[in-house]
């Protein structure tokens, strides 16, 4: 699941819970899923380190990628 899909799913879960009419067991299951998604998003954002790469053209349509050194 991509980050965007996780955030969309989280929004959908909240919308469904707030709409009401979800049986208690189902709402607990959804809540648990939401907690899990939120934890994953948080971990993903907090563990990420920005990478900076430089693209060199080796030939037409062929590229070399290396770490960017300013």
């Amino acid at each position: 699941m991509t980050l965007e899909e996780k955030l969309d799913r989280l929004e959908a879960i909240v919308a469904k819970l707030e709409e009401g009419g979800v049986p208690l067991e189902e709402s607990l299951r959804l809540f648990e899923e939401g907690v899990k998604l939120a934890a994953e998003v948080k971990a993903e954002l907090e563990s990420a380190r920005t990478r900076i790469l430089e693209i060199m053209k080796a030939a037409e349509g062929v590229f070399e990628v290396r770490e960017f050194e300013p």
């Binding site: 955030l7 879960i13 909240v14 819970l17 959804l30 809540f31 939120a38 998003v41």
Partner: peptide, 19 residues
């Protein structure tokens, strides 16, 4: 974004308690 995620969790929790 993380603040928004926390807000959604708070809302989800409120909805579950209402249930």
């Amino acid at each position: 974004l993380l603040e928004r995620v926390r807000d959604r969790l708070r809302r989800a929790r409120g909805a579950v308690l209402a249930s």
